[in-house]
Design a protein around this nucleic acid. Structure first.
Lengths: 148, 148
DNA sequence: GGGCATCATATTGCGTACAATGTAACAGAG
DNA sequence: CTCTGTTACATTGTACGCAATATGATGCCC
């Protein structure tokens, strides 16, 4: 059982952890130009697609909890990327929407995905497909196991 | 070019980010019993294998920088897991070694890798092999690209 | 052997992450 | 209508993670 040893290089989890940090480092120079962090970037990805969202929708779409998202949105609001308002129909829920500045950033972000695709695979689409498939299956597997 | 769109579910990087956090959440209850966090756990993995290490060796083995590792070791020292001393031969370098308590934890950690393997793949070794291979290739590719 | 670049760590500042807690708004039972 | 439980967010506290900076030790050039 190769992956059941207490050795660092064998640990699949460590590889994912390492890759995650490599990816963040690869994104950083690109996102610095936009003046956002990675979690802010994926928040924008969601909003570019849906125009607006409640805090709860963002939390579940991004898989983050309110303790992370709430101050993140506060910083994004301070930077003029999004605006927040409470719903009249339910004063508890907060609607987040893009500002003009937040919308404009989408244009500047257009080149990022293709750059990152190259960075990840050097253009090898087959590898991308394989990794995507296995990742999806693994994510599902882990979240299933965690429910019990 | 499916992975070059500004859509969240399409983004391979987001999948890795999501899986990373799922894994940390899966580890948490296990590591809580040992009283350590995941970065502390992988530090212990290294020390269980090598008995002792300099701060620099730990940084490069774990791929973390000194600003992360230094306070992490401070906390581990405060919890009685490791001890630190400066080398006589070079007063700049700090040797980290396991305390008795740190060594004993290895026994309590024995069951973690097999539990996590099940959690990740439900015991499917083939998937593990595939993922490990693709991850290694991708990690190498990203770090190569980042050097330029 | 004095001066200086380099090296090994430590510290500071900012932004996540998440558990735990707080708070105001809503919803339903009676 | 009131009481109570729930919901949607916000806040607090602790621990990363990294860029930038600080600090002391070492090595080397002259």
């Amino acid at each position: 059982m190769a992956y059941e040893e207490l050795k660092l290089e064998r640990q699949l989890c460590f590889k994912i952890y390492a890759l995650h940090r490599q990816l963040m480092a690869a994104y950083r120079p690109l996102l610095d130009e936009l003046g956002v962090t990675y979690p802010q970037y994926i928040t924008l990805l969601y909003l570019w697609e849906h125009e607006e969202a409640t805090v709860g929708q963002l939390c579940s779409a991004l898989g983050l909890d309110t303790g992370t998202v709430s101050p993140l949105l506060k910083r994004m609001e301070a930077n003029g990327l999004v605006s927040k308002r409470r719903l009249v129909s339910d004063e508890r829920t907060v609607q987040v929407s893009l500002t003009e500045r937040g919308r404009i950033l989408e244009e500047e972000a257009r080149s990022i995905p293709s750059y990152m695709a190259t960075c990840l695979f050097g253009g090898d689409e087959a590898d991308a497909e394989t990794l995507a498939t296995v990742l999806d299956r693994t994510i599902r597997q882990v979240s299933e196991t965690r429910k019990r």
